[in-house]
């Protein structure tokens, strides 16, 4: 483990408890560097959200980790020890969810909820906590912090609620922030504000961010590294600029081509380039590569042997058919 690695996930396997053939994660590894942003991209069902829940020790009932290690700041995360994880959650790892209303309790004022996080981890008085909360509200760009602390969540807009959730996540100066689709429920203009806020917090506090998203546009703008997941596996990982300029895995290429972007299409062509077929179900047991049935390059070996991640240039890619020559110098 490199010295500046904050979080290291190694060969993580997850299954549905009472049906081991339903394998949600089939060996996922990645490292998060201190102060940097790793984006985990993929479509629904690829396992990106479950990965973040596993790191937080918040796996829903009925899912079990069957193999793998999650190391945080040099030690194994006690993911099954709820008491120990509670000390880490909120204090050293913060989390931002997709639906801010679901993350806030409607019967308490937002000031109380943010203060609760601080009081849980630090030994200070309520009055001091309130001061800290008001300062935090100002930092996350909420208008009129002195008054908004006493408001209830339903009185806020979606974007403001997400700011409150971010304030809660940053309240104890965590080392790592996990943001699971933090802007999916928000309008594009609000999304831009929230992403700017997260990047600003990173620059100021040096917090590492794991951004889980399906939006390649966001990834291009805020991530330092990108891991692409497909059907429970990581298929490609590279530094952001490299991934966008020289994607190696056929799935990454397909995903990039399918993403609408301005000024792409020629007259007479179809509007978007599509990936045919569907994501395999979690129970489907393919002997080889899980993308093979949809892959334009699939050959015999792809249907028989699971491709292991290998380095081509500075990109880690799990594909039999990608060759060195395709990687840029």
């Amino acid at each position: 483990m490199a010295k500046d690695t904050l979080l290291s996930v190694e060969d993580l396997h997850l299954s549905v408890s009472h049906m081991p053939e339903a394998r949600i994660l089939r060996g996922v590894s990645f490292d998060v560097t201190r102060g940097k942003t790793l984006a985990i991209v993929g479509e629904s069902g690829c396992g990106k959200s479950v990965t973040s829940l596993a790191v937080m020790g918040l796996l829903p009932e009925g899912l079990t980790k069957t193999a793998g290690h999650i190391r945080f700041d040099g030690t194994d995360l006690p993911v099954t020890d709820n008491e120990a994880m509670r000390k880490i959650r909120g204090d050293r790892i913060g989390m931002v969810f997709q639906e801010p209303m679901a993350a806030l309790n409607p019967v308490y004022t937002i000031g109380n909820q943010v203060a609760e996080v601080i009081l849980e981890h630090e030994n200070i008085s309520r009055a001091e906590a309130r001061e800290r909360v008001i300062a935090l509200m100002r930092e996350v760009g909420l208008p009129d912090p002195d008054h908004i602390v006493d408001e209830y969540p339903h009185r806020l807009s979606g974007g403001q609620r997400q700011r409150v959730v971010i304030a809660m996540a940053l309240a104890c100066n965590p080392d790592l922030l996990i943001a699971d689709e933090p802007t999916t429920a928000l309008d594009v203009t609000v999304q831009a504000q929230i992403m700017r806020l997260l990047k600003g917090a990173q620059a100021e506090l040096g917090v590492a961010i794991v951004l889980i998203t399906h939006n390649l546009g966001l990834v291009a703008q805020v991530a330092d590294r990108v891991a692409v997941m497909y059907a429970g596996r990581k298929v490609e990982e590279a530094e952001t600029r490299r991934l966008f300029s020289a994607p190696l895995h056929p799935y990454t290429r397909g995903l990039l081509a399918a993403t609408p972007r301005p000024g792409r299409r020629q007259e007479g062509e179809l509007p978007l380039s599509e990936i045919p077929g569907m994501v395999p179900s979690i129970t489907e047991d393919l002997r080889g590569c899980r993308f093979a049935p949809r892959c334009p390059l699939a050959s015999d070996i792809c249907h028989r042997v699971i491709p292991e991640p290998r380095m081509i240039g500075a990109t880690s890619v799990a594909c039999h058919n990608t060759t060195e020559t395709e990687a840029p110098a």
């Binding site: 594009v188 546009g217 966001l218 291009a220 993403t259 301005p262 000024g263």
Partner: peptide, 25 residues
Amino acid sequence: RTLIDAIPIPDPDVPMGSGRKAFAG
């Protein structure tokens, strides 16, 4: 303008908040 600028463009060379550049291209 605000809306177009806010669109995250899947291209690391187009910085955040400057979507109009990509569309004008």
